[in-house]
Design a protein around this nucleic acid. Sequence first.
RNA 1: AAAGUAAGACGGAUGGUCGCGGCUGCAGAUGCAGACGAGGAAAGUCCGGGCUUCACAGGGCAGGAUGCCGGAUAACGUCCGGUGGAGGCGACUCUAAGGAAAGUGCAACAGAAAACACACCGCCAUGCAGUGCAUGGUAAGGUUGAAAAGGCGGGGUAAGAGCCCACCGCUCAGACGGUAACGCCUGAGGCAGUGUAAACCCCAUCCGAAGCAAGACCAGACAAAAGCGACAGAUUGGCCCGAUCUGCUUUAGGUAGGUCGCUUGAGGUUGCCGGCAACGGCAAUCCUAGAUAGAUGAUCAUCCGAGACAUAACCCGGCUUACAGUCUUACUUUCAGA
RNA 2: AGGCCCAUAGCCAAACGGUAAGGCAGCGGACUCUGACUCCGUCAUUCUCAAGGUUCGAAUCCUUGUGGGCCUG
Length: 118
Amino acid sequence: MKFSESLKKNSDFQAVYGEKNSLANRSLVMYVRKNGLEKNRLGISVSKKVGNSVVRHRITRLIRESYRLNEHRFLPGYDFVVVARIYSKGKSQREIESSLLHLAGLHKITVNYEKDFD
RNA sequence: AAAGUAAGACGGAUGGUCGCGGCUGCAGAUGCAGACGAGGAAAGUCCGGGCUUCACAGGGCAGGAUGCCGGAUAACGUCCGGUGGAGGCGACUCUAAGGAAAGUGCAACAGAAAACACACCGCCAUGCAGUGCAUGGUAAGGUUGAAAAGGCGGGGUAAGAGCCCACCGCUCAGACGGUAACGCCUGAGGCAGUGUAAACCCCAUCCGAAGCAAGACCAGACAAAAGCGACAGAUUGGCCCGAUCUGCUUUAGGUAGGUCGCUUGAGGUUGCCGGCAACGGCAAUCCUAGAUAGAUGAUCAUCCGAGACAUAACCCGGCUUACAGUCUUACUUUCAGA
RNA sequence: AGGCCCAUAGCCAAACGGUAAGGCAGCGGACUCUGACUCCGUCAUUCUCAAGGUUCGAAUCCUUGUGGGCCUG
């Protein structure tokens, strides 16, 4: 990912959660916080309740892939935490991608949202 | 052909585009190219071992595990071969399978009696009285139960009883075969000590503790207050003795970055040799993930039977459990044909 | 990585290897004009999370698994 890196420390996650700026749909929950940097940082959280290691790991990959393919649409300078809900189990890449973009649009952190998302 | 038994293999395929991990080469902030990149269970964490650190001055008591015999192995609760037992027509499968005459406990209900046996209904004898009572003998028959102190047949007797005899079982002794478990044969005893040890236990064998967040090094941060105390505390792990060492506890504050360990190993493949086999020996050949919030994915096209279970985290040997389906080999039974 | 515990009716739960207590809730009845309180009765039905085993007999003992919770670093 060219403009982004991943969120690593537990304290960073807690900072994003502490902002209480969250929106959700059936598959995902997204927390957003301004980080004051030039780039974005993405954190992904999949609970043990969603499934076993294979299921959790696959959802993680799908979310990361969805972000990577649409990285150019996101405004820089934000930390995101994306939490997968149980409904996202067994979903395809396209469903995860559309659900991620839907949440990003609601947060108004995408570039040319109206025009791109036809 | 059908049904089955055992052993083993595979776990969507091919190509294009984008993307990820460390490695090598080129270039040198960035990037480009190349080959490589999860499993049979990577899972559960049920055992065993390596490795590392601690203790090495040990001893005792506890505690845990295993449990027919022989072998394999680094080791095992695993594997191989055999013995006994159980199941199946069979191929074959299963088997925690030492000790109940060392001791303790337990055996509800039912039943006369549940463990130095006993005597309710019976049977027999004697006495009294008149169809019952008392005393004695007996355990063949009846009832209960999961289990009733050998089984069955004959002799014997007042009635009976291993009281006597044959066969079977059991116990003991001896011979033979086998490394052994054990098998088999002969003789004797004359039947005693029911079951339960996945109840306590006894016997034999084994077990020091912790775990890669082990541990080693580099860099860096904080280093303040209170309390306890040589009759204490730590090493020390469940306890005690012994030995060695000298601080320890709590609160507050502060750091949690990097390198190594980290993948060449009881390693894989092939061939030959030894062994019934597990396995071992020799030779040749191959290098085949090493991440550190954690890499295998997305998408398009074609094909089919439309793809199960499940993602390494120090490493190996097993066990157990999950699994859509596909294939191979050997063998058994039944049916049909020659 | 290492260790510990639990699972019994809708809920809370007890039970030396010998017929699975008790309370709340539910259902039926009594009391009352009606309801509450109170009293009486009933409710585990192929059976103690599942599958095997030991035993004459298992909720209990053993093995394996499933689900849940907790502790240490």
